[in-house]
Computed example of a mutant assay.
Amino acid sequence: MIRVLVVDDHAIVRQGLEQLLGTAADVELVGSAGDGGRAVELAVELRPDVVLMDLAMPVLDGVQATAQITAELPGTRVIILTSYGDESRIVAALDAGAQGYLLKHTDPDALLDGVRAAHNGGAPLDPRAGRVLLDRRNRAPGVRDLTQRETEVLELVAEGLANKQIARRLGISERTVKAHLTNVFQATGAQDRVQAALWARDHLHPIHPIHPTDG
């Protein structure tokens, strides 16, 4: 039996998912949450096999909640189920540890198959998400590979801020900062923060331009 936790801030969506899961003989709904903070609490308490996770939610968004759940429960698979199909959200969610990314217009049978696939170690991806990742992989590393949030994190790294300071400055969790940095390192080819900072100075607008009179 696949134990599933449903997370969405819209009650009608949660109810629809609960009804759908109830039609599958091999799936058991163990709980539901209306915000990311409650999702983390329930996940730790219930230890579901799969979490169906919305993205835009109060308290913690889906990316932050996913990062915390996958860090705390590495055996739990998180599938993002959202209306958003833009590159920045897809990459942020997968970097946070999501096992799959599906859109809410997904056929009900395909959604159930996605739950089964994630439980078995697969990575269910909406075709749009798959195309985004393929296009991203085929592009040469460069500024265009970085989302706006990743660029902001990189700029603050170049300023010399630690992860905790970056998290406080941007209003995100430290785990999310680490997830963004992982993608920054991959996109720029940097092996550490120093190399990333040097890359930023060569490819981004300087944070603090150095003039000859500065000594």
Score class of each variant (00 low, 15 high):
residue 116 R to M: 08
residue 117 A to S: 14
residue 121 G to F: 03
residue 123 A to L: 09
residue 123 A to F: 11
residue 124 P to N: 08
residue 126 D to V: 03
residue 128 R to D: 12
residue 128 R to M: 12
residue 129 A to W: 04
residue 131 R to A: 12
residue 131 R to D: 12
residue 133 L to H: 05
residue 133 L to W: 03
residue 136 R to D: 11
residue 137 R to M: 13
residue 137 R to T: 14
residue 138 N to S: 10
residue 139 R to K: 12
residue 139 R to H: 14
residue 139 R to I: 06
residue 140 A to V: 15
residue 142 G to C: 12
residue 142 G to F: 07
residue 143 V to T: 14
residue 145 D to W: 08
residue 147 T to L: 05
residue 149 R to V: 11
residue 150 E to H: 08
residue 153 V to D: 00
residue 153 V to E: 00
residue 153 V to S: 00
residue 156 L to K: 03
residue 157 V to W: 00
residue 157 V to L: 05
residue 159 E to R: 11
residue 160 G to D: 05
residue 160 G to F: 02
residue 161 L to V: 05
residue 161 L to Y: 05
residue 161 L to W: 02
residue 165 Q to T: 09
residue 166 I to S: 00
residue 168 R to I: 04
residue 169 R to I: 07
residue 169 R to E: 10
residue 170 L to K: 07
residue 173 S to L: 08
residue 174 E to D: 15
residue 175 R to L: 13
residue 177 V to W: 00
residue 178 K to N: 15
residue 181 L to W: 01
residue 181 L to M: 11
residue 183 N to W: 02
residue 183 N to D: 14
residue 185 F to H: 11
residue 186 Q to T: 10
residue 186 Q to H: 10
residue 187 A to H: 00
residue 188 T to S: 13
residue 189 G to P: 04
residue 190 A to S: 13
residue 191 Q to R: 14
residue 191 Q to E: 15
residue 192 D to L: 02
residue 193 R to M: 08
residue 194 V to A: 14
residue 195 Q to F: 06
residue 195 Q to G: 14
residue 196 A to F: 01
residue 197 A to N: 08
residue 199 W to N: 03
residue 200 A to D: 01
residue 200 A to R: 00
residue 202 D to H: 14
residue 203 H to I: 10
residue 204 L to P: 02
residue 205 H to L: 10
residue 205 H to P: 08
residue 206 P to F: 06
residue 208 H to T: 09
residue 209 P to N: 07
residue 209 P to R: 01
residue 211 H to P: 05
residue 211 H to S: 12
residue 211 H to N: 12
residue 211 H to M: 08
residue 212 P to S: 07
residue 213 T to Y: 12
residue 213 T to V: 13
residue 214 D to P: 03
residue 214 D to M: 08
residue 214 D to V: 06
residue 215 G to Y: 06
residue 215 G to I: 03
residue 215 G to R: 04
